[in-house]
Design a protein around this nucleic acid. Structure first.
Lengths: 158, 158
DNA sequence: GTTATTGCAAACATTTTGCACATAT
DNA sequence: ATATGTGCAAAATGTTTGCAATAAC
């Protein structure tokens, strides 16, 4: 954990920025919630526990800065809020999203599915891929099971 | 064109909604700009040419309604505005986006690349895919060419 | 001492809502 | 008549900005 904070600190300093206590607290919150896709408001509330005096604007500015530095990825799932994800590797990320339209849950799959497609794009379209995004909307395994049980009660339930 | 309007009309009426002149004008604008990804404001301004008395709220309500009916797809490219796309086929759509981070242009590729992945998700993750989204960010062919010319002036230019 | 950074409040942009009026069956 | 749909203005939402005060080197 400290190692990753240090890395961010170095990246910031390399560009003349400082790792202020507010920024550090923000990065820590992101580290501690790596699984989630936090909105700026989410981050703000969590950071407030560590540093109650922080302002929402600072969180926005920090997230924007980290985003420019490719430390976090700014995403948009269409619910009207930007969400932020710490990037494990600052270049390539092979995680895709499975979004359940029934329960709203979101899980990630970490398989590398797109590299062949990206090579094809380079070759055939002359498009140099820097990043990508792949999301699936559908019904998750849990909801599928629940739906099956409900439509056929007594058959598979205990 | 009229056929597609009629189809929308039928879909609306099937759910007890009406194809009012305002809604029809909105659908026509979407049909006439199928290539673009218009924002609500874009649609509003274009519809105003046909029906100057229309209100922005009506456009929003219409787009929301069409979105619920899967006539249009509501998208978010992270620039803070929702964009709307007429869906050719109300179920499957195999168009993906190439977004150039340099010039901001966006083009579409209509190849079916995801069906094998979706089958894999069904099989291995028990996730029933209803829809997907695949975007690539990078440098488009035009910008790639321009960059090459600029970094090596006189060699390929006339 | 200069420069970056912060918190607050105000500004901003996009989208949604309340409501009285209009329209269609 | 009753339901649905509309335009307008106001509200709500998420995000950005101006500015004086503060902290870091």
């Amino acid at each position: 954990m400290e190692a990753r904070i240090d890395k961010v600190k170095q990246q910031l300093q390399a560009q003349g920025y400082k790792l202020t206590p507010q920024r550090e607290a923000t990065v820590r919150v992101l580290l501690e919630n790596e699984e989630d896709h936090l909105s700026a408001e989410d981050v703000f509330m969590l950071v407030k526990d560590k540093a109650p005096e922080i302002g929402l604007a600072t969180v926005y500015r920090t997230l924007e800065l980290l985003s420019e530095m490719h430390v976090v990825e700014k995403m948009n799932f269409g619910d009207g809020v930007a969400r932020y994800d710490l990037r494990t590797d600052n270049n390539k990320h092979h995680h895709h999203h499975l979004i359940c339209v029934q329960c709203g849950s979101m899980s990630e799959i970490m398989e590398d599915w797109l590299t062949p497609l990206e090579e094809k794009l380079e070759r055939e379209y002359n498009f140099s891929v820097l990043d990508h995004r792949l999301d699936f909307q559908g019904i998750c395994a849990k909801c599928n099971a629940k739906n099956a049980a409900e439509s056929n009660p007594g058959s598979t339930t205990s």
